[in-house]
Design a binder for these strands. Structure first.
Lengths: 344, 344
DNA sequence: CAGAAGAGCTAAATCGATTTAGGCTCAAGT
DNA sequence: ACTTGAGCCTAAATCGATTTAGCTCTTCTG
């Protein structure tokens, strides 16, 4: 395997290698050699060369040439991190697809895809800066490092950021300062005296805000500080581990705000393992408008924005940006609501 | 909004509209008019025209022109249906990304994205047939209609199909005929006399096989037929509803094989709502190597292939196909294993 | 007033693949 | 001997955007 000097293999290179025209190579690659009557021997030589040289088609070139010039094609993407739960993203995608299906016309088509980056390393995403991949994107689940990168950059296409405020970007997010407060109020109104918040080590802006507003509200309403329990990541396992330690250190803990549903699942496990009950011994409030929260045992009381509404706002904004009907960055806030179930 | 005769707006059209060269328009679009010293008035006229005409850049053209000719770019996709749970897909994506990160070199980059289709309507996916979107794809969660479409077609790029056998495609799937049998054996060995299987209305091939092999094994081992409980879809809610009816009609039901984890979650709910216990009154076996199954209450015993192994096989196959080291379709079977937990 | 400097813009090549129209050879038919 | 046709292949245009090299005109300098 030679490296370095070997540029990507093109149709032209194959043609030269075989001593034939690019047209013939293209014909074979498209499997149209029969109708175009290429000699079987030639076809074989071309195929051989294709294999030997390790040809990989350039999809951009193919698309450019192949597309119907009557149809305009819009490429939309949802960018999220590998580390984030895909669940919300899939709802966003579904909703985006719905909007897009409505707008699809004979002369107007859309492609929607999900792309993922490693949390905190959005800047390394290939093609992010080049405007050569998307007509518009939704960016979600960024960490502060990603936010800093975005703020320092201007992406040359339509962007809507979900779940955080960023200078110069259009953003859709939960009204800040409210979610955590609602959770705190619920727990305290339920007579809990030792409320704690369970958070992952890496916080997105919205998650951090939830934790902050929770702690602020607890302090304001009780004069004491809420415990902050830090889990290694978002998984139930790390949530369970973190809560287990906490319950040992602080046995009087009687109320919990878990900032993701996966952490809440782990928390349930730890609470039950410690032979306590939800909500009898420990009340739990989760986050979001989770489609499975009803099936937690007990069903999980949640605080969060109605997700469909968030997505609808995002999609509307994105299309306005792409059509340039809106030029300046806009912030849209969706207030969190409480879905009262059995856990608090 | 005129329709029909209006072809997509190109840079050239804007240039003609303004009475200037395409180069100038391109300069403005790239926001490089300062360094290239375009007159502010001209810039404004161009911007105006861009807005008026509703210009949408052609990303394929941009990419073709913009890319570094030293670097070969491979586009990989994971195709799955909107209706399927995204959870497994996200693991596949993560694993694919890992492989891809390893293979990334200065002269070799990859893009990986998830694309979704409506279950049963894969054929409507734009760009599927044209070879102008992907260098290689993994197709997952297809329904019989999609399978039929695929069998009748030859996609002009590397394809690996997950979870079903299709003529002329390379496939990776759970060893057929085994998973359901294991589930049946476990339930029967646990002394269950009235085992049932809970399935969604729309069955993928693997899911259907699990249900079949379960029923076959029950019949073989007991001489009686297992009950088939059909849920409207994959959601916990529909699983709960279906099982509720079943428990009313068939109160002696004491063992359940739920073919997806979401259905199992719904099943737990219905069983508890009927004031029965898992596994005391009803033992439950789920499917897969689910990262959250440990945190179900009680933890869910599962039958299924080790998912990481499945993904590893898929990725290996895909790369072999793309490099043309393997030309003929191959089938890879991954045997299901049992993860024994508390529910059965 | 010649020449330089700069402002403002354009022509044309280019990215990689596809496809249309047509060219050349040789054999068969008249 | 001349046409016809089949077989096999090529030249060149094309998709839409970007960029380099360079052109023209004005203004300023010495």
């Amino acid at each position: 395997m030679a490296r370095g000097e070997n540029r990507p293999v093109t149709v032209r290179m194959i043609a030269e290698h075989v001593g034939i025209s690019p047209a013939a190579v293209s014909t074979v690659l498209a499997n149209r050699h029969e109708e175009r009557r290429l000699a079987p021997a030639t076809v074989e030589r071309i195929r051989q060369a294709v294999r030997e040289l390790g040809y990989v088609p350039n999809v951009a070139a193919r698309r450019l040439r192949a597309h119907d010039p009557e149809v305009r094609h819009m490429e939309l993407g949802i960018l999220t991190s590998f580390e984030a739960p895909l669940f919300l993203v899939s709802r966003a995608l579904r909703e985006l697809q719905r909007s897009v299906d409505q707008r699809t016309a004979p002369d107007r088509r859309f492609s929607v895809s999900i792309d993922m980056f490693h949390a905190g390393r959005l800047r390394e995403m290939p093609g992010l800066l080049s405007a050569s991949r998307y007509n518009g994107v939704i960016i979600s689940n960024t960490l502060p490092a990603d936010d800093a990168f975005l703020t320092a950059t201007t992406l040359p296409y339509a962007v809507v950021v979900q779940g955080r405020r960023l200078a110069n970007y259009s953003c859709v997010l939960e009204t800040p300062g409210v979610g955590g407060r609602r959770a705190a109020e619920m727990l305290l109104a339920g007579g809990r005296r030792q409320p704690a918040v369970l958070i992952p080590a890496l916080l997105t802006q919205t998650t951090a805000d939830r934790a902050e507003s929770f702690c602020a509200a607890v302090r304001e309403l009780t004069g004491r500080d809420a415990a902050r329990i830090s889990a290694a990541d978002f998984t139930p396992a790390s949530g369970a581990a973190a809560l287990r330690s906490h319950l040992e250190a602080e046995p009087r803990c009687d109320g919990l705000f878990a900032v993701t549903d996966t952490l809440a699942l782990g928390a349930y496990h730890a609470i039950k393992a410690a032979r306590r009950t939800v909500p009898g011994d420990v009340a739990v409030v989760g986050v979001g408008d989770h489609e499975h929260a009803d099936f937690f045992d007990p069903p999980l009381t949640c605080v969060g924005p109605v997700y469909d509404q968030v997505v609808a706002e995002i999609v509307a904004l994105l299309f306005n940006l792409m059509s340039r009907r809106r030029v300046h960055p806009t912030e849209v806030f969706v207030p969190p609501t409480v879905a009262r179930r059995a856990s608090a």
